[in-house]
Amino acid sequence: MTPASSNPHHWSRIRETGSAAGIRAMVWIRRRLGRLPFQIMLTLVIAYYYVAHGLHRRASHTYLKRLWQHRHGQPPRHLTWLSLRHFRSFGQSLMDKIDAWSGIPPNVRFDDESRRHFLDAVGSGRGGVMFVSHVGNMEICTAMSDLREDFRATLLMHTRNARQFDEVLARSTHRPHPPEIIEVSEITPSTAMTLGRRIAEGGFVVIAADRVPISDSGRARTLSFLDHPARFPEGPFWLASLLRCPVYTIGCFRDDDGYRVDFAPFDDTSALGRRERSAWLDAAMQRYVDWLTRQCETTPLQWFNFFPFWLDCDDAHPDGDSETTPPPR
């Protein structure tokens, strides 16, 4: 298998959101000219990306075909149209991100059950780990710290691209209660200790568990997702088990007039013994993938992993299978 560190199509090597100048221009248009000119501009940018970025386009096509096959037993009938809408939905999420970071409160709705779970979680004072994914808009999740003063989120990020986007946004926008972002290339004891302290203070650690970080490709497992093999990171699950705390899943999904929050208890690792961990990890990772599958089925066009996600898709091994040495650990 190709180690992630040498794979040019690994997600962390693919620039997600264009140049800093481009982002600044879009933020300027959004803030100075308003929503409509921004939407028009965004549509043009998205169309350009669709045509010019074959890798993203193929990733979208593969995902849509696999999801449709899984859900309906056949590929989508209008793949190009569907994929364009998929790209558009990604553009929309970027716009919402800019709004959220600008301090424009997103229109966020909970259904009764999610609201009850969320209030219980924040009110318990026990903090916890929240698993998120790149389905929907995880920045909206952290923007909820603007909605509830006592909800404190620490977002754990692996990515170098996102830093560029966030730095630009941080300079261009002003927020009263920004979430804390901890950027890591690997989880060290010091990261774990910081997170442990946040949770002890009643805070929440938000981790995406659907991308394998580049430095950590050794600790990943292959699981079947939409009937095809894909790699999932063990790291978030190890952390959740080591931190001995309540674990939740959270997702924020766009619909016509705002965001719908899906928040649910996932597990509680407080009493999980050391020897039970491996078995817990097996089960928890499978349950996460099941949850991820449900999110894709519910909001098919909000899957924002525009890179070769599966081991058996066209762009997964761009430089062949010549390398067999495992990455250094």
Binding site: I182, V184, I187, T188, P189, S190, T191, A192, M193, T194, G196, R197, A200, W238, L239, L242, L243, R274
Partner: peptide
Amino acid sequence: IDALELGLALQKRYGITLESD
């Protein structure tokens, strides 16, 4: 993984923090 676990135990027992590098 043991290192993470040990770090968390030290943090709990002694309230220690570490630099991030």
